[in-house]
Design a protein around this nucleic acid. Structure first.
Lengths: 228, 228
DNA sequence: TTCAACTATTTTGTATGCAATTTACATCGG
DNA sequence: CCGATGTAAATTGCATACAAAATAGTTGAA
């Protein structure tokens, strides 16, 4: 990204830059859920004063990544299993809608790209390359979201997906579940090619409900919410 | 709400207080879409320094009520008709999900309250009392949302509903559309009482799609987005 | 030892000051 | 009259300073 060195003659984007870096640190797990965000420590680490840092906290609080505790600063938002479950229910509805709209609006070029990503995903699956699989998987979902042509939907999804990012894309998968997910994706592509919006919507919802159930079972097994 | 007089020895909640007041001013239309948020002017008006004011801007930017223009301050988020349409599509999906979950989780006490609000709404409808109608209507939707028992869903809905609040609840209604909406609400109550989640979901979605179409037609007729 | 009260330190929250950018405005040339 | 150029004012963005609150640490008594 941009380098936040001392020679920052980028007067305009300090708080945005800090916000982006904090967001990345949270998603990466460098700042785990519940971690206190000490202003002095972070301002030294990020080499900015407390003012833009605090502004970044407020922005992240607005998108739900950070919780503000009156007179006690900010902490990375905790993610209890119930919240993960609640979030996934909403994400399922949002991605379902995205699928329905994408079926109406997707271009042939976008379809070709999604098809290519589908093959990437199959390759990763065949190699048992979980990070590669998640990467292709994530991109497919993102392409469908983009094809929906609804910025509000995309933004709303982004916001929720960011929160559960670590949980969603750093989880484990049993062979069965993995195979099932790949099969579901194959069906998704078929329905998208057929421009069958309602069916794609239904499939995406069950796809995500399956994912949710898998995750909840995993969280029940190992109580920590997010990967480190 | 809270009175923001000069004697505010409430060190903890300045930015939150300012944020709430700005939010109210935006919803009321006192700060219309596109209005520049001048820091000096607002800090004098709200009697706080620029620091908590700027932090409030960032919070409101996080929830999408305010846009930040680098080096050019903040403006109340504009709401183009396309955005209204996009937002309503998402709201329809969210409220549909809320209906489905509410059908699973609603208590008899909540149902009784919704039934009472339904009669309030009928009364306002009979009197041709549009503000009273919108008030009861809004509360019914809020009760259904609460009965869904999904805080993430509620928060996500709140966020989007706030943006289109003026458009949604200060619009005009033709007699036909008004009668239709009332009838749809009667069906909604029946389905909720029957705990028929999928049907309630479908009905809520069509209810909101109808509302969306009405609004878009109105916006096309009179180009300004929000009521004053 | 343990708990409580008191004090010192740290941390947060707000106000203010200063530099950089943008905006408004006046002057000039065509 | 219109547009361009240069200057002054206003505005934003960041850093710092100070006050209030919370936390940590210490002392004392039971």
């Amino acid at each position: 990204m941009t380098d936040a060195t001392v020679t920052s003659f980028d007067r305009s984007a300090r708080h945005a830059e800090v916000s982006a870096r904090l967001k990345a640190m949270i998603i990466e797990g460098e700042l785990p859920p519940g971690a206190r965000l000490n202003e002095r420590v972070l301002s030294e680490k990020l080499e900015v004063s407390r003012t833009p840092l605090r502004e970044a906290f407020k922005m992240l609080a607005g998108i739900g990544l950070v919780e503000l505790l009156p007179n006690r600063g900010a902490v990375v938002a905790r993610l209890e299993p119930e919240q993960v479950e609640a979030t996934f229910k909403v994400i399922a509805a949002l991605e379902g809608l995205a699928g329905e709209l994408a079926a109406q609006n997707v271009t042939d070029a976008e379809l070709a790209e999604i098809r290519a990503l589908q093959y990437d995903m199959l390759a990763s699956h065949a190699r048992r390359d979980l990070p590669g699989y998640f990467s292709a998987n994530m991109q497919i979902h993102a392409r469908i979201m983009a094809a929906a042509r609804n910025p509000v939907l995309a933004e709303t999804f982004e916001r929720l997906n960011t929160r559960v990012f670590a949980t969603r894309y750093r989880s484990n998968l049993t062979t069965e579940r993995w195979d099932q997910a790949v099969a579901e994706h194959a069906d998704m592509l078929k329905l998208l090619e057929a421009r069958n919006g309602p069916a794609l919507r239904a499939l995406l919802e069950t796809h995500l409900h399956n994912k949710r159930r898998t995750l909840m079972a995993e969280l029940a097994a190992r109580p920590q919410d997010a990967a480190a």
